[in-house]
Design a binder for these strands. Sequence first.
DNA 1: TACGTTTCTGAAAACCTTTTCGGTAGCCAC
DNA 2: GTGGCTACCGAAAAGGTTTTCAGAAACGTA
Lengths: 338, 338
Amino acid sequence: MGAAANRAVTLRDVARLAGVSVATASKALNGQPQVRAETRARVVKAAEQLSFSPNTLAQGLITQRSGTVGLLTSDLEGRFSIPILMGAEDAFGSDQTSVFLCDARGDTIREKHHLRALLSRRVDGLIVVGARPDTRPSLGELPVPVIYAYAPSDDPADLSLVTDNIGGGRLAVDHLIRCGRRRIAHITGDPGYGAAQDRARGALDRLAEEGLSLAGGEVWFGMWSEAWGRGATRMLLDRCPDVDAIFAGSDEIARGVLDVLHEERIDVPSQVAVIGFDNWHVLAANARPPLTTVDLNLEQLGRTAAQRLSAAMDGTPVSGVETLPVRLLTRESTAPLR
Amino acid sequence: MGAAANRAVTLRDVARLAGVSVATASKALNGQPQVRAETRARVVKAAEQLSFSPNTLAQGLITQRSGTVGLLTSDLEGRFSIPILMGAEDAFGSDQTSVFLCDARGDTIREKHHLRALLSRRVDGLIVVGARPDTRPSLGELPVPVIYAYAPSDDPADLSLVTDNIGGGRLAVDHLIRCGRRRIAHITGDPGYGAAQDRARGALDRLAEEGLSLAGGEVWFGMWSEAWGRGATRMLLDRCPDVDAIFAGSDEIARGVLDVLHEERIDVPSQVAVIGFDNWHVLAANARPPLTTVDLNLEQLGRTAAQRLSAAMDGTPVSGVETLPVRLLTRESTAPLR
DNA sequence: TACGTTTCTGAAAACCTTTTCGGTAGCCAC
DNA sequence: GTGGCTACCGAAAAGGTTTTCAGAAACGTA
């Protein structure tokens, strides 16, 4: 594979080839004004000829900026971190900032290790992505700015970016109401998750505004799995056979819901509308029928994280919790009643 | 969040606090022998007190090693790259090598951009992960060693690491045969994928050894989707109602297969055994029943990639295509006939 | 011609660490 | 008291780049 260990070409090589000093070469390549056009051209040509690329390490050493930020995640599947990473990369754009992704796998000592590694590589900032949307311990005072994304920090002095779970719950129910549904049930995951509580809260709020209450009488908390989605749906149909819409707290649960409805020959969406949460593409798009769901806008979250981080790196101190809107993605599992 | 822009502490600060020169401090911290135990202790204490962490950029500048490798992927979902990343991190372990993940999103110009960024950060090596398990264009001659993982390079002078799709096909069919099945069908994805061809090839080989041929008469090529899994299964049941096992070319397809079997009240595994491919956890583990599947061993792939890369970085030139074994993961969708 | 001005170039310092090599101090033996 | 060890420490160079500042060259003006 051609180890091709020919020593990397340095600015000195370029300067020599162009017949100038390294100082001039540097200025020529960086667009500094105090260099004659003709000289600049010569340097640029030489650089291209040698396919020179500046040593970022050396640059970082003197500018005190490494041009890298760390993305520290605990997310084994990459379900959240990859979209956030893409958003962040987008926002930093080609302005020579790269993003370092480290996966701590939910392990505190691995997290510490990665943190040390990132810090010793002099990252200019840090984005911390939690595995679940609940508060997580703050990393404390660090020599670089930190943004917590998805899972907020427990220290209000930090800046956290979270998705709007309450708003998402409202949005889902609002959509169902607009579809003419009145007997709406909510099946969701582990009640220990703040996200489950918030989504339920949003749903209940919107229902109350309409003078409605939950079909089935209560929120069906359980687990974040298809199996629970199936089990809860069976119980729900038992207790409340005239339900006309189900809001599932996650796409996994929604898959279970759809499964049982299908089994019972209940048509979706004409008899019962189903809406999920997360827009986990492989689950939602492949569902039968394709699943209307609440998209978390994770790329946007990543972009915003990058922007806030840029601001913080430029010295504007930031803190608090910022809630980012989610959006409805309609597919075929919901439709107006008539 | 405490921008805490207090200038990072340097070795000079440590030395000053310990009352020694920077040279001595360096030697003390790096375990060099020519420093008195008492002095070393003083330096170590000072370093801890200031929570000093050496500037990797400066270190890299003189050792000519950045202690980072790049992981260049085209995989939007993170389905492949995250496990490979974890395996690679494992293999490099805490021996101060970090892994830089960049997502090119299947876009050539983005790939070029990331490549430049990585190279200018002086990564010590590169792992390139393709989006699909087919050959991809070589990056050509680079100043650092490169390993192609998952998708092999089209240049035989490169080193590529791929999963054993033929072996996987054999393994799947072998398992079904051991379960006493004789009328085995194969539903798989896009025939344009080498992986689809290889898996089918392995399956056919193993069947031939047993003197069997494929139930349904042919391989059912189609698309990598649940919908195709459903459609193909319906056709299959139509043409060949006595089938007793189905080998699906991916877990997504297998989900479709299970769906239709369930719909037709055909019990899995007692009447028909089903096996998938990929071990995409959210799909396979949540299936009804949980899906026996072929695990790609991607973490192992990542570990091996890291090892080969280390070897290459140490000067051993490597090339060719290395095929890594996959393994069977039995859940409940397969079982002996009786 | 002498001087001031403008325009361009280069030497050198700085960033932080590692490593080499010379130097100092202490010790022992003569 | 001298020479020769050993054990320890520090000055300095190196790595590649940017930036500052001084100097050189070219030009115009008096």
